[in-house]
Design a protein around this nucleic acid. Sequence first.
DNA 1: TGATAGC
Length: 463
Amino acid sequence: MTDENWAEAADLQENLAKKVDNISLKKETDENYEKPLSKEETSLLKKMLHNKLVQNNQELQVQQRDPTSPLYSVKSFEELHLKKELLDGIFSMGFNRPSKIQETALPLLLANPPENMIAQSQSGTGKTAAFVLTMLSRCDISKPYPQCLCLSPTYELALQTGKVVEVMGKFLKGLKVGYAVRGNRIQRNTSITTQIVIGTPGTMLDWSRHRAFDLRKIEVFVLDEADVMIDTQGFKDQSIRIQRQLTERCQMLFFSATYDEPVIKFAQQIVRQPNVIRLRRDEETLDNIKQYFVRCSNMDQKYEAITNLYGVLSVGQAIIFCHTRRTASWLAKKMCEDKFVVALLSGELDVSQRASILKRFKEAQERVLVTTNVCSRGIDVEQVTLVVNFDLPVDMHGRPDCETYLHRIGRTGRFGKSGVAINFVMNDRDMRVLQDIEQHFGIKVGSLDTDNFNEMEEKLGDD
DNA sequence: TGATAGC
């Protein structure tokens, strides 16, 4: 559904509300009396909404699978009638009440019989907790086989999500989590006994091929970062192959911060009768993240710029994004040689190194991380106050990659905190890429110079 | 280009 459709649907709904008011407040003889909606109008409205409902709340667009059922939202976790152990787990994580998207999403996620969902919301709004909670509430701990599956695009994200499952489920006696990720090879003829499996597509497919578990017994299937998972060469085949083996009654949940129009259409073709929850484009303004660019004329100047920024980078924690593994390892090596302390995280490292670097960064033992798009999505480190695009995000054709830009700078400014993003612009092509990004999000990215350097530093201090 | 499978 396009934004225009949404606007139209919202108008219709407002109109409907007016007419309802008229029925209750005005008589036919009164001035401004409007006839209630006719049958045809009602049916037109329903058609327009395509069985979807626009919530009064402007930030959230909710298209319910069944438009006739009332739309519940909850203001507390207690209202969800969860197992006590699960509720304890939620509170122990410091979640006192549902986030904005959770208020509406959780009742739909926990409905019985289970309903599918496609959800889009900015990073840091509580998506992970929402689907983890769903998985935990639906698995039967007395059964020693996988009942919930979650696919993530990277090793790091799978570990992070699994950690949330473990922590939220820590009071559920007997709950176990399995990790289908690189390095965890499956022995022949072994059966997985964990109720929940988190993994990356390749290994997950490998496990299911070795019959380590039965995809037909899966009750909840989560596709995290769903847009990359169904749209990227390599991920797509593997994810879809797994998804197609699931049963009709398996609950399918697609989550992401970004979907372009063709991708969400494709998602709607794969997922049967989903509830769709989206944040509007213009709500993705990122206004808590201050964005700048720095002009450099060549690679040496880029290097000089990053070293000049180092003092600012290490105030809090920072992530430096490079386009390739090669650039990332070159930069990290050069900086280390020049006595700037940085850590490198990219796919060229082996998995044990990757896990340990990520752990060190999360524990703030490393303050500055040089990385590739492997860390652009989902990685959640609260103290990250600064993101540098050493290379601007572009796709395989060199075109601006706005989705990745949003994900990258979304590593900072999480949970409403303020953050700073700095983009290195090396030539006219980069400048055009940045202009396209500005246009796409309707933002203005200002030049960083001596005049506003202090303003930028102050931003790093606020919370 | 990046990520993602082990053989």
